[in-house]
Computed example of a mutant assay.
Amino acid sequence: MTTGKLNAFKELLDILDKLRVECPWDKKQTNESLRNLTIEETYELADAILEGDDESIKKELGDLLLHVVFYAKIGEEKEAFDIESVIKSLNKKLIYRHPHIFSDTKVANSKEVEENWERLKLKEKGGNKSVLEGVPKSLPAMIKANRIQDKVRGVGFDWEHKEQVWDKVSEEINEVRDEIINGDQDKIEAEFGDLFFSLINTARLYGVDPETALERTNKKFTKRFNYLEKETISKGKDLKEMSLEEMDIIWEKAKQFDK
């Protein structure tokens, strides 16, 4: 790390030390009060990444870094840990979990790196913890499903050939249809959950992040609908008074802006 980087990081720590003592807002913050703000900042970074906006990514990374050093400062005040021990702990973990870099372990590809990572994590926990124990309970359901599937894949619980998953998807679709016919709302919900889980698994097998894929569609739909709404208003009409056929004509025009 260059002297400039070290100085910039030290300046950040010094600024936070001063704010923690002199600023009424910063002074009263706790781990609990910062938690939701940290989640919000993480989503703002995710938005910037999806937009491909480097300037916004830089800004949001700064906001997240502030939260990291803030939690470390609170830990220091409680005499539980500080930013130095946080970094040293991270360094130790990175070296331990990359034996193919820092030791003599051989790997053929990134898949083997991930499998080693999961095995080493279990060893760190004494070998008697669940593979899924580290999946945060508060993760959004789609991200959690993807993480669960990725975790179990790391210990070999996965389809032998990715093409096999399509039979499972077809099976789940049929089960949803059956329960819709039966009219049991609780079972319909359960079967939709199974279908979503299998589709998320399918996306993972084909190298697609389901959260990113769905968000791309959300943004595309929003852009098209905003166009539909704008065009309708410009014609002096109300969406509620238009037929689906009329809406569809404008919707098809909106597709030309999909990029």
Rank of each mutant, 00 (worst) to 15 (best):
K5I: 09
K10T: 10
I15R: 11
K18N: 08
L19E: 15
C23G: 02
P24W: 03
P24R: 00
W25Q: 05
I39F: 04
E44A: 00
D47Q: 12
I49P: 07
S56G: 06
L66E: 11
V68E: 14
K73D: 15
K73L: 13
E76A: 14
E77P: 10
A80F: 15
V86D: 13
S89K: 04
N91P: 02
L94A: 04
Y96M: 09
R97C: 03
H98A: 04
H98K: 07
P99R: 04
F102I: 04
D104Y: 02
N109Q: 06
N109H: 06
K111T: 11
V113G: 01
R119P: 01
K129Y: 10
S130L: 11
E133I: 03
R147K: 14
R147H: 12
R147P: 08
K151I: 05
R153V: 03
V155E: 11
G156S: 15
E160S: 09
K162D: 15
K168Y: 14
K168L: 15
K168G: 12
V169R: 04
V169T: 08
S170F: 14
N174R: 10
E175L: 05
E179I: 00
Q185V: 13
D186P: 03
E189P: 02
A190R: 12
F192W: 14
F192C: 09
G193I: 01
L195I: 03
S198V: 13
V208S: 08
V208D: 05
A213G: 05
L214F: 12
L214E: 13
E215R: 14
E215H: 15
N218K: 14
F221R: 07
T222I: 07
T222A: 11
K223Y: 02
Y227R: 01
K230N: 12
K235I: 01
G236Y: 03
K237W: 04
L244A: 07
K255Q: 01
K255E: 05
